[in-house]
Amino acid sequence: MSFVDLQFKNTIATVTLNHPGGNRINFQMREEILAAFEKVASSKARVLLVKGSGPDFCLGGDIRDWPDIGASDLRPRVEVYARAIDLLEQLPIPTIAVVQGGCMGGGFELALGCDLIVAGTSAHFMFPEAFLGIMTLQGGVYQLAERIGRNKAIEMVFLSEVVDAAQMANWNVVNWLVDDGDLEKTADELAERLRLGPADAYRRTKQLMQIWRQQGRAAARAALYDVSMPLFDTPAVQSALRSAVKAVKAGDPIPKAAFPDN
């Protein structure tokens, strides 16, 4: 049985978790998620959607696999998922988590590995690891701290309290909060908008953000023009600039450029 579905449509890739009962991530799913992201990385996809089938996005790791496995045996099986999230974060294309219902533990870390989160009003977020006496195993505490600061991240991880989507939107973890009935439509429209956007600029923006994340602001500032200036040598940008200048001279709004193959 396969627990992960990968589909490509119009250069939009969709990875869907499909494990009935909350999309809990068992050992096989970890391998399948990594394999799916590897296929996306080697494809011509321009956007990735990450979804969970059923009422919940993902309730985290399938702890039914864990009892009576020692740390030395468990570690390599858990590290597979860490590699998957690392790869997700390193993808040069926009990535979007589409979240409904429970988004907990490793599922929350999966969502935080995406660039953007679109959530339905039913979505609720939690790190339950402290209930088991363990830590967020894929780096969820620092993933969250990057978005909401150390204090609130530590609070969520230590207390393991459920936080609803509205509060997560207030904390800038959730980018768009919509009715559950509009969740798929909103995510699909966003993916299509990004698919038609400047792929090279997106890639270079993510490259710069990786430098900032790993090496700090000074390193990102030092790399800024090495990363950004080559865009001005591309035909797509030159065409967009000429159209924009023409509009400005005519007193018209700057038109939205098309970037079909950049």
Results as ranks from 00 to 15, higher is better:
D115E: 04
D115Q: 04
L116G: 10
I117S: 08
I117F: 10
V118E: 10
V118D: 03
V118H: 07
A119W: 05
G120Q: 01
T121G: 10
T121P: 03
S122N: 08
S122R: 10
A123S: 12
H124D: 13
H124Q: 11
H124N: 15
H124I: 03
H124K: 12
H124V: 09
F125E: 09
M126Q: 11
M126G: 13
M126F: 00
F127D: 15
P128A: 04
E129H: 07
E129R: 12
A130K: 08
A130P: 00
F131N: 03
L132Q: 05
L132E: 01
I134P: 07
M135T: 06
T136D: 03
L137R: 10
L137W: 09
L137S: 13
Q138F: 05
G139Y: 14
G139S: 09
G140N: 01
V141N: 09
L144A: 14
A145K: 08
A145G: 08
A145P: 11
E146Q: 07
E146W: 12
E146K: 06
E146A: 09
E146S: 05
R147G: 13
R147I: 00
I148A: 03
I148V: 03
I148F: 00
G149W: 00
R150N: 03
R150D: 05
R150A: 00
N151H: 15
N151Y: 12
K152H: 08
K152R: 11
A153P: 08
I154F: 12
I154A: 06
I154L: 10
I154K: 14
M156N: 02
M156W: 06
M156V: 06
V157C: 14
V157M: 02
F158K: 15
L159S: 15
L159K: 07
L159E: 11
E161M: 07
V163I: 11
V163E: 10
D164V: 13
A165Y: 04
A166P: 11
A166Y: 09
A166C: 10
A166W: 01
Q167V: 14
M168E: 10
A169D: 05
A169S: 03
N170A: 12
W171Y: 11
W171A: 06
N172D: 00
N172L: 02
N172H: 05
N172K: 11
V173F: 06
V173T: 12
V174P: 09
W176R: 09
L177D: 07
L177R: 03
L177M: 01
V178W: 09
D179P: 08
D180G: 03
D180A: 01
D180L: 00
G181E: 05
G181N: 15
D182R: 06
D182P: 01
L183I: 04
L183Y: 07
T186V: 12
A187S: 14
A187Y: 03
E189T: 14
